[in-house]
Nucleic acid binder design. Structure first.
Lengths: 218, 218
DNA sequence: CCTGTAATTCTTGTATACAAAACTATTGAC
DNA sequence: GTCAATAGTTTTGTATACAAGAATTACAGG
């Protein structure tokens, strides 16, 4: 099944930005990349337009496309939004989640637990992701699911770092239990709170300080 | 100051989609539009790529770009996400809002009130927008502010309809008062709840029904 | 040796040309 | 009259060509 070159290139470029092949501030040279992908500049530029729209690269007129990796502050902000989006998913899912989904959640959780006991971090990440994806889906809001998935993907490269910050995986598992319990009880506020704190990073006080300085400076 | 054609065209195309010049399902004819804008197909296609990324048009390979106006269900979903984003802004703003911003909020509110009394709906919409923008900004989270602003803009064409659904503007004003009070009290939960209900549309029960049907069908 | 400027080279932005797929319409069979 | 096949047209997707701004280098002056 033939795919448009521009589509394929957009995906591959995105991958190259995510996996750190390009560092922050690197310019995406059109001729170099077109040779790399074996196409002309035209489909490559169309792909770049899309990356620009999703914020992965910055387009400076007559200068080129520069990759825009989030700095520490922006990263904290993005995690904060992720926490709120997951909280929203939890709030809605508490009212709408199906029994089958609840069961799937429990299963993912036990597999998560097993991965922790086996020390299998790769498997843990996979099951953890499945756990959260089920909650996105169970919000019963396809648009929210899409937005949450998009940001989740964007933050993927930084999630391991976040986990190291937060300490051990054990605490994360306990929070999963609390989340499932809240959803089973149809307790919207509890589910939202549990998910928010689950995703939130430690550096919140630091961020509060930064933010207050920023608004005071205006 | 010369701007890139692609940028200018992306904005104008977006406008044409928003203001209803193109209906749902319309194909964006490249040659027709390139003649309309007085450019070649190249910059026009680049603009279309961006619209596709933001979801305004759907790109079907070898078929073209079709405008994708949200249907009733998707619209309800988007308003629901808007409500959650505003709630998140309120939650964070309750902790971080500056006194000057709080004052600006009160001023916007009084101007809102005046517009209601004068029956000046245009002015009301302008001040209402200012009110909400201040809250986005006061979240102290530039990324959240950006996301909220983006969705706010996307929903703009449908906001008047929503307001008609909800009844009079008076109730909206009362909710504004409650929001300001919660922010002044630094009551995060109250601010979040007030903003969520303020934005939420009536059709929530209807949506709950639809969503439960959707998840049950899987 | 440093600095400002002009010429050169590179790169982006746009237009045009070409190939292939999809749509349309005509023609022919039944 | 309806349907199918096919020729012709349209439209998308990609490559190439060209124009103009930006970066770089060479060079003259101090």
């Amino acid at each position: 099944m033939e795919q448009r070159h521009a589509d394929r290139i957009a995906e591959q470029l995105e991958e190259l930005v995510f996996d750190g092949t390009f560092s922050d501030g690197d310019r995406l040279d059109e001729v170099r990349l077109s040779e790399l992908f074996g196409v002309s500049r035209t489909p490559l530029r169309e792909a770049i337009q899309r990356l620009a729209q999703s914020g992965l690269v910055e387009l400076i007129p007559r200068r080129g496309a520069f990759v825009r990796q989030p700095g520490p502050v922006e990263l904290i902000e993005m995690f904060e939004v992720m926490a709120e989006l997951e909280a929203a998913c939890g709030r809605l899912a508490a009212m709408r989640i199906a029994d089958t989904a609840l069961e799937a959640l429990r299963e993912a959780n036990t597999r998560c637990q097993r991965a922790v006991e086996a020390g299998d971090t790769d498997s843990y990440y996979a099951e953890n992701e499945r756990f959260h994806k089920i909650i996105y889906r169970s919000s019963g809001n396809a648009f929210l699911e899409q937005e949450a998935t998009k940001l989740h993907k964007r933050l993927k490269p930084f999630r391991r770092v976040q986990l190291r910050f937060r300490g051990r995986m054990g605490q994360s598992m306990a929070e999963h239990e609390a989340i499932v319990a809240a959803l089973a009880d149809a307790d919207a506020d509890a589910a939202a709170t549990a998910l928010r704190t689950h995703v939130a990073v430690q550096g919140e006080k630091f961020h509060n300080l930064m933010a207050s300085l920023r608004s005071a400076a205006e």
